[in-house]
Amino acid sequence: MTMRPPMYAYEPPPPAEEMEAEAGSPLDPGLPIAAEEDIVAALRSVHDPEIPVNIYDLGLIYEMKIAENGDVAVTMTLTAPACPVAGEMPDEVAHAVARVEGVGRVRVSLTWEPPWTPERMSEVARVALDMF
Rank of each mutant, 00 (worst) to 15 (best):
P84T: 01
P26F: 08
E18K: 05
E63N: 07
D38F: 04
I61H: 08
D91Y: 14
P81F: 02
V85E: 06
N69E: 06
Y56P: 04
A82C: 08
I33F: 03
I61D: 13
P12K: 14
P13V: 01
A35W: 11
A9H: 07
G24H: 09
D57C: 03
P29Q: 08
D28Y: 05
E92Q: 15
M76A: 11
H47E: 11
P32S: 10
G24M: 03
Y10G: 00
E18Y: 13
A35T: 03
A9K: 12
G70Q: 08
D48N: 04
P13M: 01
P26K: 12
E36C: 00
P13R: 01
A73Y: 13
G24I: 04
G30Q: 03
P15L: 02
P15K: 08
S45Y: 14
E88H: 07
S45K: 12
P32A: 09
E11F: 09
V85C: 10
P26R: 07
N54L: 05
V40R: 14
D57T: 15
L78E: 02
L27D: 09
A23E: 03
A67C: 01
V85H: 14
G87K: 13
D71R: 00
N69R: 12
A80H: 01
V74T: 10
L43W: 06
I33T: 14
A42I: 06
V97P: 00
N69V: 13
E50V: 06
A35V: 06
D48Q: 12
E22F: 08
L43C: 07
S45F: 13
E50L: 03
P26N: 07
S45H: 09
E17S: 14
V85R: 10
N69G: 00
G30Y: 00
P12Y: 08
A86R: 05
C83Y: 12
P32R: 12
P81Q: 15
A42G: 14
P32D: 14
R44F: 05
A34C: 15
E63W: 06
